[in-house]
Nucleic acid binder design. Structure first.
Lengths: 222, 222
DNA sequence: TTTTTATTGAATATATAGTTAAAAGGGAAT
DNA sequence: ATTCCCTTTTAACTATATATTCAATAAAAA
């Protein structure tokens, strides 16, 4: 994760750089607006910390300019605490705005929050267990990289069990949670379990879906 | 754009509601944690403003709970100004944090900034997949360089799917997102899908829009 | 060994998707 | 306001995938 700090006050850059590096970010610095633009054009940057007070450019205009050319989140830093300045900052396309002096931990928390928000959209919700990958968004299951074709009910049952490894579910519970109604004939579950096993287990040696004799089924934890 | 305010102080809710409505938001209110969760389960909400001081629940835990179940941005409100509280808020999944008393215009600017950031990520201007090019700005689709004439709904549906390849959308989700209202008869999606396929797919061998039996449709990832 | 519970395979029933055509809706030009 | 044209929705029908049931068999506990 590459962060570009745009600020002409070297001691601030130095301090921030240190803190961010502690948190696993790669930090780069630009000391003027022109330098910033040039840097962005030639490097991959994921996040920008932009101080409004720069020697050559108005920070707000620079923010707007960056916004037009690049789709990179920007956190503005400013000595001005006025509400109007903040609102202006957002108008010009900032993703967040902090006033100096600031708490570095809060800064980092805010950077994380913004990045997390973006990533969440792309983040597939995955359950991984040995050779088995369950992808909730795709509603697909992969066994050793190969897609396994599960039906809706099969997927739902597997997902229920797998998202609570070790927890034993009675057939009634499974029926309730997957079918969202009371069970009429609970043997149906057995058949679904069998079909899932046919698709993901090595015959005769189930290692994902286990039977708890007399109780129900559970997903293997170990 | 539907905003849910979670706060038990009615005068704050009233004031906020007014300001937000002035800015074109539809505002709903929940006065406790339980109410909030119930509301979220039964309604479509795009943004949450969460006050940390609630009668029945710890605001932080509520935030975490919401975060686990729903992918909706959360702005935290608190009377506490301490850096530690802020950082904690972000740890618990908040997207932003403001201390009371706050400037309403700043609040709105921050909401906008968050939503803008999300929307921008959603909007990849150009999607290319094999022989298919989808251009959002022109709202045109090209197949092997030839322009394909899609209707408005057809384009919107295709674009929704294509901008999230692999992700399976139920008919309800598609209807919600494209029509921006609740679905009455969801089979209309089928017809649109068929018409899109007629225009972009080789007969009998769809390779762009795939059916997830029992769930919905998705755009092919591979 | 007996009893209880789980697994399995096949038949039957149900649910869901695909297709078609016709009706309804909406916007632009007259 | 009316007509025309194109889009969208609805409804009916067909095709197909999936779910359930049932009875026989296997496996585990007592």
């Amino acid at each position: 994760m590459n962060v570009l700090i745009v600020d002409d006050e070297k001691y601030i850059v130095k301090g921030l750089k240190h803190s961010l590096e502690q948190n696993g970010y790669n930090v780069f610095a630009a000391y003027s607006g022109a330098e910033a633009i040039e840097y962005l054009e030639n490097n991959i940057i994921h996040f920008i910390i932009l101080d409004l007070m720069l020697p050559d450019t108005d920070g707000m205009m620079l923010c707007k300019k960056i916004r037009q050319k690049f789709d990179i989140p920007i956190l503005m830093l400013s000595a001005k605490d006025g509400d109007y300045d903040k609102i202006l900052g957002f108008e010009f396309g900032a993703d967040d705005y902090m006033t100096k002096p600031f708490n570095t931990l809060e800064l980092i928390a805010r950077i994380k929050a913004i990045i997390r928000r973006i990533d969440r959209k792309f983040d597939d919700k995955l359950i991984v267990k040995d050779d088995l990958v369950i992808n909730l968004n795709e509603r697909k299951v992969y066994l050793r990289g190969e897609e396994v074709n599960l039906t809706v009910k099969e997927f739902d049952v597997l997902y229920l069990l797998a998202s609570n490894p070790g927890r034993v579910f009675t057939r009634e519970e499974i029926y309730n949670m997957v079918w969202k109604e009371d069970a009429y004939d609970v043997r149906t579950i057995d058949v679904h379990i069998k079909n899932i096993r046919d698709k993901i287990e090595d015959k005769k040696h189930p290692k994902y879906i286990m039977t708890k004799w007399g109780v129900g089924y559970y997903f293997n934890k170990n």
